[in-house]
């Protein structure tokens, strides 16, 4: 797929088959298009070309099997809802139009909060949570969706150690139950420890495969060794020409 903002391609011709049942890291420098890739996969930004298949079928038909954990900065944390309310939002699809959030669903939301270690914070307004706790609330919201594919945008960004450990534990639990997670990750130190597969991205797919094979110094140098100047130049021409 190719995705463009203001007609200028941000990511070029990504062609990637994610292996099911693995933890996959999307790694790349700032501006490499990591978040864009996830958002394009979810149809949140328009694609220039390409399509997304989930478990062999078009994404639109498989929407309920995909859960999204956005970046923490994407919402207004002053919004008057509690942690439990936010988690319950993941269940709204299942609850359906018009029905209120009944006790059964609230219990489910609390259980998910418990899984990420926030059981005691269920009634707190979300602005009173620390950054890491907010991130875990988003994670819990994805968990209640009981999806098969999880797309996470920088869940480890700016979180404390306890959160990092909690997220990692959840990721491993997911894997052990056969789920797939695609995670935008910024910390090169931990990629090898946390993930089985890695997708190196810098405007285009530089390399992908099992972490042990792909996460090499050579590939990293290719990923982080500056953007391809020519790609930028052609991108500009495309934007001007169109």
């Amino acid at each position: 797929m190719t995705v463009a903002y203001h007609r200028r391609p941000v990511i070029w011709d990504i062609d990637y088959d994610a292996p099911a049942g693995e933890l996959i890291a999307i790694v790349g420098p700032n501006g490499a298009g990591k978040s864009t890739l996830i958002k394009a996969a979810l149809d949140l930004v328009p694609k220039v070309s390409g399509e997304v298949h989930v478990f062999g079928q078009p994404y639109e038909e498989q929407r309920s099997r995909v859960a999204y954990v956005p970046q923490r900065t994407s919402v207004d944390w002053d919004f008057p809802v509690s942690a439990q309310d936010v988690v319950a939002m993941g269940l709204y699809g299942k609850i359906g139009w018009f029905w209120p959030v009944s006790r059964k669903w609230r219990k489910e939301a609390r259980e998910a909060l418990d899984r990420v270690g926030l059981a005691d914070f269920a009634r707190r307004q979300i602005s009173q949570l620390s950054g890491g706790q907010q991130q875990r609330v988003f994670l819990a919201r994805a968990l209640v969706q009981q999806a098969d594919l999880y797309l996470m945008d920088e869940p480890f960004a700016g979180v404390d150690a306890a959160t990092e450990r909690a997220i990692l534990q959840v990721l491993r639990d997911l894997r052990s139950t056969g789920k797939t997670a695609l995670v935008v990750h910024h910390d090169l130190q931990t990629v090898a420890d946390y993930f089985d597969h890695v997708l190196l991205l810098n405007m285009r797919l530089v390399a992908s495969g099992p972490t042990t094979e792909v996460f090499t110094e050579e590939n990293l140098r290719r990923t982080y060794g500056g953007r391809l100047a020519l790609l930028d130049q052609v991108g500009t021409r495309l934007a001007e020409g169109q």
């Binding site: 958002k39 149809d43 949140l44 999204y68 956005p70 994407s74 919402v75 207004d76 936010v86 709204y92």
Partner: peptide, 9 residues
């Protein structure tokens, strides 16, 4: 609260 999430859902 989160129109992007709502759209993704």
């Amino acid at each position: 609260f989160d129109d992007q999430f709502a759209a993704a859902e």
